[in-house]
Amino acid sequence: MTTTARAATFTVHAIPAEELERVRRRGRDVAGNEPTPFGAAGSPLRCCLRRATAADEVVLISHAPLRERSPWREVGPVFVHARACPGYDERAGLPPEVRTGPRVLRGYRADGSLDYDAIRTVGAGEDIGPALDELLAVPGLREVHVRAAVEQCFTYLVRPASAVDG
Score class of each variant (00 low, 15 high):
residue 60 L to Y: 06
residue 17 A to R: 08
residue 109 R to N: 08
residue 66 L to F: 07
residue 79 F to N: 01
residue 164 V to A: 15
residue 119 I to Y: 00
residue 142 R to H: 14
residue 42 G to K: 08
residue 20 L to D: 01
residue 152 Q to A: 13
residue 154 F to C: 00
residue 148 A to T: 09
residue 98 V to A: 03
residue 38 F to K: 10
residue 5 A to W: 10
residue 99 R to S: 14
residue 16 P to K: 06
residue 50 R to M: 12
residue 77 P to M: 08
residue 97 E to T: 06
residue 153 C to G: 01
residue 111 D to Y: 11
residue 12 V to S: 03
residue 61 I to Y: 02
residue 33 N to Y: 13
residue 163 A to G: 04
residue 130 P to I: 04
residue 144 V to T: 01
residue 74 E to F: 11
residue 64 A to W: 02
residue 92 A to Q: 07
residue 50 R to V: 15
residue 76 G to C: 07
residue 146 V to Q: 01
residue 117 D to F: 09
residue 18 E to K: 08
residue 123 G to H: 10
residue 161 A to D: 11
residue 62 S to N: 15
residue 119 I to F: 00
residue 40 A to I: 09
residue 106 R to D: 06
residue 106 R to S: 14
residue 73 R to E: 09
residue 132 L to P: 05
residue 57 E to D: 15
residue 36 T to N: 07
residue 45 L to A: 00
residue 122 V to Q: 01
residue 114 L to W: 12
residue 75 V to Q: 03
residue 65 P to V: 05
residue 14 A to F: 05
residue 19 E to P: 03
residue 2 T to V: 07
residue 118 A to W: 06
residue 92 A to C: 10
residue 19 E to L: 13
residue 95 P to R: 01
residue 11 T to K: 05
residue 40 A to S: 14
residue 101 G to W: 06
residue 162 S to Y: 10
residue 103 R to Q: 08
residue 114 L to C: 10
residue 77 P to N: 08
residue 37 P to M: 07
residue 127 D to A: 11
residue 61 I to F: 06
residue 52 A to T: 09
residue 21 E to F: 00
residue 56 D to Q: 07
residue 52 A to K: 05
residue 147 R to T: 12
residue 140 G to N: 10
residue 128 I to M: 10
residue 89 D to W: 00
residue 16 P to A: 15
residue 69 R to W: 09
residue 95 P to I: 04
residue 78 V to M: 02
residue 38 F to W: 11
residue 59 V to R: 03
residue 28 R to Y: 11
residue 151 E to F: 03
residue 77 P to L: 13
residue 157 L to I: 01
residue 70 S to T: 14
residue 6 R to Q: 14
